[in-house]
């Protein structure tokens, strides 16, 4: 028996308290789960209540849906990989090669979590857009007739913007994990002649793996769901599932098609959410 077990024991007379959960649960059910259920109903049944297999099959085989699905997944995977690499590099430097003001910088990056995602896209159009600073500079310097840098209006623009926006979500758990790494262990390894890369590989990375897995699966989830960045870039070729839902519902008023796509998108998101919860719970991150 541990002390924690004692604390976790049933207190006397809890039965009366069981019903207190009802008001917030009812609110959530009405405002969230009921609409979710209606999306599913609208997706699979037509107005007369008949199962609508033909329409579902048509949408799932359509080019626009498959393109959006491939875009969503590939952008999400690429952005998450980018976030993991950038986050790991930044966290390693912040935690183990700190410089004056590194704490402040860490907090500054952290505030990006609170800022709207489309801010970065807007900034990127000024920086890397066809009339942006980079292209203007290159055209001036080399007397080019056309803007040489065009990646912004491809998937890569979205990926870069998402890396900026979601790296803090990797950085935060990584820094927390690194703060628990025993400094004495690193110093001892250094004294014994281990090179920095070897220490990173053998001492630091094992401690970071739970944070990387939990942060990475959270990044996958958030990038699959990302809407503002893709909308603001507005490139014709880069349509993801959330953007497709918006387009079908608001611009084309095809609610049923929107609902079918939404069901797929939600299923994908919930799967990734499950992965995240499993990773975070399993690894204690």
């Amino acid at each position: 028996m541990s002390e924690a077990a004692v604390i976790g024991a049933r207190p006397a007379r809890v039965e009366t308290g069981k019903f207190w959960i009802l008001p917030p649960a009812a609110l959530l059910a009405l405002l969230f789960f009921y609409p979710l259920a209606l999306i599913a109903r609208q997706a699979f049944f037509d107005d007369s209540g008949m199962a609508n297999v033909a329409e579902v099959t048509r949408v799932l085989h359509s080019r626009f849906f498959l393109n959006a699905l491939i875009n969503t997944v590939s952008i999400s995977v690429a952005a998450t990989a980018g976030c993991l690499i950038v986050g790991l590099v930044l966290a390693l430097i912040l935690a183990f090669v700190p410089f004056p003001g590194s704490r402040f910088v860490a907090r500054l990056i952290d505030t990006f979590i609170a800022l709207p995602t489309f801010l970065v896209t807007l900034a990127f159009t000024f920086l890397y857009g066809s009339a942006g600073m980079l292209n203007a500079g290159l055209m001036e310097a080399f007397s080019l007739p056309l803007p040489p840098v065009n990646f912004l209006y491809s998937s890569w623009g979205v990926v870069l913007a998402e890396v900026t926006v979601y790296t803090p979500f990797i950085l935060r758990p990584l820094l927390a994990a690194f703060s628990l790494v025993d400094r004495g262990q690193i110093e001892a390894a250094s004294v014994l002649g281990a090179r920095p890369l070897r220490i990173v590989r053998q001492v630091i990375l094992p401690a970071a793996i739970p944070a990387l897995i939990a942060g990475g699966s959270l990044c996958l989830l958030l990038t699959v769901n990302e809407f503002g960045i893709v909308l603001f870039i507005g490139a014709k070729g880069v349509i993801t599932l959330p953007l497709l839902i918006y387009g079908k519902a608001i611009q084309e008023s095809q609610y049923q098609v929107a609902c079918i796509i939404a069901v797929i998108n939600i299923a994908l998101s919930l799967g990734l959410f499950g992965l995240y919860r499993f990773a975070a719970g399993r690894l204690g991150a």
Partner: peptide, 14 residues
């Protein structure tokens, strides 16, 4: 965990 666009869509439908 649910994409915000779908939350909006659900509210419109409901």
């Amino acid at each position: 965990a649910v994409p915000s666009v779908s939350v909006g869509l659900g509210l419109l439908v409901a």
